[in-house]
């Protein structure tokens, strides 16, 4: 289908449209607002006090180091969104070619790649990420890499499955007999059929990546200060007094995480319904 057909169909799903709009607005907000208002997420405003309640000068109040929470939440959003969107791309970067190879060439490639997938999937990703992150020190880049690497088997298996079903259709055999090269077949016949599920999957996995990042930050293996991410901001809620008496510290970030993940879910569902409701994921 071409792009205008796509949008027409996409628009019919209300939740998907809401999801996409929310994400776009959010991205706009976290990148534009801090620059526009010259917010500083690291400066401590001792005059305003520690854990100060929201006020005119600090719309979301201050945290335990007297830093402006609105700035931190927005900058944190930059990091969380970046990790959330980029990590699945890493998974795709690894998983797509491997899945294609496994499904198209079968044989040795299939065995090795599927075996490697099993190995990766047989271990809790949180724990493996922690081990990896204790070797390479955490930063947005390494987090994207680690979370992305944890997920490649999912993409690979998805692609593999789709390639297998496309293969079964006759025109592939026809193309081979005509004498087209592997690369041509892969890029013209197989890849298009595989791309849709991959896009949908990226949307779903973005939500998961954000959740993973917050989990890792809670365990202390995630984003390091003074940088903020929604996950690291929320980990302050481990302190009972912060949890109960100064909810403005963690509630906005918490809410944003939930809304963002939900939006990715809706977006993914919408994409799937638009492209192919019967898509196997």
């Amino acid at each position: 289908m071409n792009s205008s057909e796509f949008w027409k169909k996409f628009r019919t799903s209300k939740s998907a449209v809401i999801g996409l709009s929310f994400l776009l607005l959010e991205a706009l907000a976290v990148y534009l607002l801090p620059a526009l208002f010259r917010m500083d997420p690291v400066a401590s405003d001792v005059q305003a006090g520690f854990f100060a309640a929201p006020s005119a000068s600090h719309l979301l109040g201050t945290d335990g180091a007297a830093r402006d929470l609105l700035a931190r939440t927005l900058y944190g959003g930059q990091v969380s969104l970046l990790v959330g969107v980029a990590a699945p791309f890493i998974s795709v970067l690894l998983g797509l070619p491997l899945g294609l190879a496994a499904g198209y060439y079968r044989g040795m490639a299939e065995t090795v790649i599927m075996r490697a997938s099993d190995v990766f999937m047989s271990f809790p990703s949180v724990l493996l990420s922690m081990i990896l992150l204790s070797i390479i020190s955490p930063s947005p880049g390494t987090l994207i890499a680690v979370i992305g690497i944890m997920d490649w088997p999912v993409i690979a298996k998805l692609v593999y499955g789709n390639v297998l079903s496309i293969r079964e259709k006759e025109y592939i055999d026809g193309a081979v007999s005509i004498g087209r090269t592997d690369f041509e077949i892969l890029s013209h016949e197989i890849l298009p059929g595989v791309l849709s599920p991959v896009f949908v999957s990226i949307s779903f996995r973005s939500g998961g990546a954000i959740l993973q990042e917050s989990g890792l930050s809670f365990l202390g293996a995630g984003i390091r200060p003074p940088q903020a991410s929604w996950g690291s901001i929320i980990s302050a809620a481990q302190d009972l007094s912060v949890l109960t008496r100064t909810p403005w510290v963690w509630a906005p970030s918490g809410l944003l995480i939930v809304l963002t993940i939900m939006s990715f879910q809706f977006l993914g569902q919408g994409l799937r319904d638009t492209l192919d409701p019967k898509m196997k994921l």
């Binding site: 400066a43 401590s44 180091a65 830093r67 202390g220 200060p225 003074p226």
Partner: peptide, 13 residues
């Protein structure tokens, strides 16, 4: 250690 984060943040500032 993580519990000292606020102190470290202030110091670096």
């Amino acid at each position: 250690a993580s519990k000292r984060e606020n102190i470290a943040a202030l110091l670096t500032q």
